[in-house]
Design a protein around this nucleic acid. Structure first.
Lengths: 261, 261
DNA sequence: CGTAGAGTTGATGTAATTCAAAAAATGTGG
DNA sequence: CCACATTTTTTGAATTACATCAACTCTACG
């Protein structure tokens, strides 16, 4: 059909925690039909062109602030590479990470016009930014986009409910097991239809601080718990910030509180 | 324009925790423009007729199951009176209440086709039920409805994020203070544009078990904490399952962790 | 007025935090 | 490429906020 795509134009410094992957020949910026949360499923070529036109590609180094809690919600983002953490904070600095946005996911919706959360890149992140008014216009023009967005937000809400169960009712061990399985699941989802790995890998580009703030624990408890799981040979650390899940079923039992120890 | 509306047709047993209020003369079942989450803001008369036509009024006694986790998501509900609790459970019975749905709010969205949560009435609840296919048709026919629903879900997501901060990072005292303020806020939102009460009332129709499962605490801790706040004259119990907030500003300070004690 | 369910209060236990320090990992400049 | 500085992670000991266990009180309702 066409030649090999040209190499990516923009490159920034910073370690890449995930192997490089070349994009397809379509030059718009959304990783569309690749993930279950894909916002442009079923949108026609013209629609995609319109989307590409009103968005701008961004490449952000690790630790960049994308959104600040309480600020005017001017932008809507779609993540195409890397991981973003979303969080809320208390005045004294205590912080709760409410979720991680991986490729194919969005962030930046707001009801009030102000962001209700902060967002920061975990590693090097590629994203598309839409300006709010233009994005709202797109939503009105493209009923499918609105539909997909509604589905995606519904999904996020279900995830949030699951996380509330974790935060309110699970033990440290159950929390960590759930987290690792969730990361492995996210990786699986991102890769698409590949055969299920008997010992899946959970990408963990975030620090212990981030994990602790996500699970409502301290870094020490996270560290101790991961060490214990490793000692018990349920997981094994691999290179470049990943953890291999050696016994997924056992870990699942732990994550759902179905184990005595 | 018209006479006094006829008295309500259906009545069920069970204490009413909120004074009776007669509906307007429009006979559809959604409490529309009354609350910020109103699903039919801006929908024209014809649209409202269509909505009314594809929904059915329900009156449910306290403790009724509306939705069961894992079951096929056949219905979508809009609450018009009373309070519903939404929750997720672990196999061993531990439970996390992820939210309370008050009048004007919806429940029953699902991405997967299965409910990701359970829902049970706290007190006597009036609701409108839509069958799923019909509701989806309505969504497609009424772009405003889809828009309102997207806004409402976005709101729910922000609420969920706030609750994650509470569950993961707040102390028992901060949790209870936040809960009471949230209930008072919900009441204020439901009442509409009334002058702000200097000592607002938080309706608490739910039991200590429910509060504990909402805050990720035990009933004993909830009880002790409420007693402490009462002893300190920050709150006062009133009749019929309500708590009056005597010092809202002080409680807000506690809720956001800005107090030493 | 008696009983059952809900709520409160007290005594004790413990999972996770806090405080502290060593060990690894990561980055930096010669 | 290797010493050195800095940050991150791990491990250990002591503390604590909340849970658990247990008993008592209140309220609603026949």
């Amino acid at each position: 059909m066409s030649q090999t795509p040209p190499p990516p134009l923009h490159l920034t410094a910073g370690r890449h925690t995930r192997p490089e992957r070349t994009e397809g020949d379509l030059q718009h910026c959304l990783l569309c039909d690749r993930s279950r949360g894909g916002l442009c499923n079923g949108i026609d070529r013209d629609g995609l062109e319109a989307l590409a036109h009103s968005s701008r590609r961004l490449i952000l180094p690790p630790g960049s602030t994308m959104v600040e809690e309480g600020q005017s919600a001017e932008s809507f983002f779609n993540i195409t590479r890397g991981t973003v953490k979303l969080f809320k904070s208390l005045p004294d600095g205590r912080r709760q990470i409410t979720g991680f946005a991986d490729p194919g996911q969005f962030l930046g919706l707001s009801r009030s016009g102000l962001y209700a959360f902060g967002a920061e890149t975990v590693d090097t992140v590629h994203a598309c930014r839409f300006q709010r008014p233009q994005f709202e216009a797109l939503l009105n023009d493209q009923p499918d986009l609105k539909r997909n967005l509604l589905a995606a937000v519904t999904d996020k809400l279900a995830e949030a409910q699951e996380q509330m169960l974790l935060l309110g009712r699970k033990t440290a061990r159950e929390k960590v097991a759930s987290f690792l399985l969730g990361r492995a699941q996210a990786e699986q989802t991102m890769l698409g239809d590949t055969p299920p790995d008997p010992t899946p890998v959970a990408p963990v580009p975030m620090t212990r601080v981030d994990i602790a703030d996500y699970l409502g624990l301290t870094i020490e408890t996270v560290s101790r718990t991961i060490s214990a799981l490793r000692r018990e040979k349920l997981i094994a650390s691999t290179e470049n910030h990943s953890i291999r899940i050696l016994l997924p079923e056992a870990l699942r039992q732990i994550a759902t509180g179905q184990t005595a120890i």
